[in-house]
Each structure stands twice: as structure tokens, then as C-alpha cells.
């Protein structure tokens, strides 16, 4: 197990290298640079800026310099925000983005699993239909539609919650719900399907025939087994939460870092693009690892060696 863990962690290194190299090449192959403007800048200014940021060096030199700085924890300068470094920008927003992601994840798990379980236990009953309806709507509704709907209903019409910002719990509610909508639906759907499958297993029948009450059967025998397939989708869902936050942050003006990814690409702010890509690559690689380890914990049949 330890050997497996070490191997998996070591694997992340070449993955990050590949991601950084591909991003770097893609980014520089897109036409247009950071100093292209509707009002063109004088050639001398562009030349100065290129020299200042080392953009006139050959690409391999630029890459090596970037990678070297990264190893010392320096993410480099931002071209657009000239008196701030990428480190400053990331440090300012990462906490907010992480908080939004974690809250949405918890909400999704805490609502999605019970919803799926209730639906399965009352299959073809009213709760089942209600839960299925919620899942279908949740899966079919993109987060920006849900976001706008929530703002119009709860902020503009009812004036219960703020339309934007991140100042305190009342401002957290709508972005969290908007981001969690799709994961709630997915988790509920998987939980329901998996619970239904487990219900027909021999060991469940045995448990019932032993005379155990439903509550004991469900909690002791069914839940843990039923959750294994659910855990498998947590990885992709976490990736969704990371990427989906771009849109939710934009619509609710949440001061996270997601927006800088989009803006960075538009502005050709190379340092910012590289930093954001690497950050997301690390997050996704680590989350994948955690989810894989979680399987082993939940499902004794899985053994890593």
C-alpha cells in the first residue's frame, strides 16, 4: 500500500510536467500576444515590455526560466496587473475558491446521498418520483441557468439574499447552491441506482431473514456497499466543482481565482495562465488519488499493491 502511494505521488510529477509543457506550447501557439490592443501600443513600448518580461527570449529559455522560478515557489509576474505578482493574485483568491468548492461538495454529499437513499427505499412511491424529478432537473440545468434563476427569485424578486459578493454567510448561500446543483443530482441518481441493486443482494435478504429491522439493514449492510459506486463519481464531480466555479464566480462576482483563468487567457497573461493550469492540475491529480484511496477503504475487495 505504501509502495503504491509513493508510486502514485511520484507519477504526479511527470503528469504536471506534461501539463505544463502542453499548456505552455498551446498558449504561445495562439496568435496575438499580451500587448495587442484595440489602440495599438507604440513599437518601443511593446519592445520594452517584451524585454522587461523576457518575452523576446526563445521559447525554451522562457520555459526553463518559468519552471526554475516555479521550483522556488515564484509564479512570476502578471502582465495585466503590472504592480502585482501572480503569487499575490492566487493568494488573494484561492481561499475563497476553496471555500466555495468545499461548501458545495459538502452540500452535494449531505443532500444527494439521503435523497438517493430515500428514493430507493420508497421505490416508485411519491418520494422516489420527487427525488427523480429533482435529479433530472438538476442534471439538465446548467449552472449558469440555475445561478440566474436563483438570483432572479431570491435576490431581485424576494430580496432575501444579495445578488453578488462574498461578504458573510448570506452571500455564500446562492453560489454554493448554484454550484452544488449538478453534483447533488448526480450523487442522488447514483445512490438510488446503487441502493436498488444492493437491495436485491443475497446478504441483504439474509439480513432481513435474520429478523433485523430495516434501519439496521440499511445502515449496517446496505449503505457501505451501496456507496462504492458513488465514491467512484466523486472524482469527476470534484473536477466539475473546480471547473464549474469559473461560471458561478463570474455570475455571483465571487472574488475567487476562477475568473482569472478566463481573463488570463483572454489577456494572454501567460504567467497567470500557467499558474492557474498548474494549480488545477495539482488539485485534480491529488483529488483523483484521494478518491482512489477511498475505494480501498470502503471496498475491502480492492487492494493496491
Amino acid at each position: 500500500m505504501t509502495g503504491y502511494l509513493i508510486r502514485r505521488v511520484l507519477w504526479i510529477v511527470p503528469v504536471l510536467f506534461a501539463v505544463s509543457l502542453i499548456t505552455f506550447l498551446l498558449m504561445h501557439s495562439v496568435p496575438g500576444g499580451p500587448w495587442d490592443r484595440e489602440k495599438p501600443l507604440p513599437a518601443s513600448v511593446v519592445q520594452r515590455l517584451n524585454a522587461e518580461y523576457g518575452l523576446d527570449d526563445p521559447l525554451p529559455v522562457q520555459y526553463v526560466r518559468w519552471a526554475g522560478a516555479l521550483l522556488t515557489g515564484d509564479l512570476g509576474p502578471s502582465y495585466r496587473f503590472r504592480d502585482r505578482s501572480v503569487n499575490d493574485i492566487v493568494a488573494d483568491g484561492i481561499g475563497t475558491t476553496a471555500q466555495l468548492g468545499v461548501m458545495a461538495f459538502l452540500l452535494a454529499v449531505l443532500l444527494g446521498i439521503p435523497l438517493g437513499m430515500i428514493a430507493a427505499l420508497r421505490q416508485n412511491g411519491l418520494p422516489d418520483y420527487a427525488a427523480t424529478l429533482i435529479s433530472i432537473v438538476g442534471i439538465a440545468t446548467p449552472s449558469f441557468v440555475l445561478s440566474i434563476l436563483l438570483v432572479v427569485v431570491f435576490s431581485v424578486t424576494l430580496r432575501l439574499l444579495p445578488t453578488h459578493g462574498w461578504d458573510g454567510p448570506s452571500a455564500w448561500v446562492l453560489p454554493t447552491v448554484a454550484l452544488a446543483g449538478y453534483p447533488i443530482a448526480q450523487i442522488a441518481r447514483y445512490t438510488r441506482a446503487s441502493m436498488l441493486e444492493v437491495t436485491r443482494k443475497d446478504y441483504v435478504r439474509t439480513a432481513y431473514s435474520k429478523g433485523l429491522r430495516e434501519r439496521a439493514v440499511v445502515t449496517v449492510h446496505m449503505t457501505r456497499n451501496a456507496l462504492i459506486p458513488v465514491v467512484t463519481i466523486l472524482g469527476p464531480l470534484l473536477a466539475y466543482l473546480v471547473t464549474g466555479s469559473f461560471i458561478v464566480e463570474l455570475i455571483f462576482s465571487v472574488p475567487g481565482i476562477g475568473r482569472f483563468y478566463v481573463d488570463g487567457i483572454e489577456e494572454r497573461d501567460y504567467g497567470l495562465i500557467m499558474a492557474m493550469t498548474m494549480l488545477y492540475a495539482v488539485i485534480i491529480a491529488v483529488l483523483n488519488l484521494v478518491v482512489d484511496l477511498l475505494y480501498a477503504y470502503i471496498d475491502p475487495q480492492i487492494r493496491y499493491s
Binding site: 507519477w11 504526479i12 495562439v30 449538478y182 446503487s194 463519481i233 469527476p236 473536477a239 471547473t243 482512489d292
Partner: peptide
């Protein structure tokens, strides 16, 4: 572009046990 970059990021990670459920990466 961003979606492409993220696909690179997600696709490169080696996975031990293939997930039994068919989760979608959005």
C-alpha cells in the same frame, strides 16, 4: 481553450481501479 487544458490535466492522471460507475467529467 480552457476546457482543452483541463482535459489534458484530467486525462493525464493514472487511475488505479477503473470506476464502476460511468461518471461524467463536466
Amino acid at each position: 481553450v480552457m476546457a482543452a487544458l483541463l482535459l489534458v490535466a484530467t486525462a493525464c492522471g493514472p487511475t488505479a481501479a477503473p470506476p464502476t460507475g460511468g461518471g461524467r467529467t463536466a
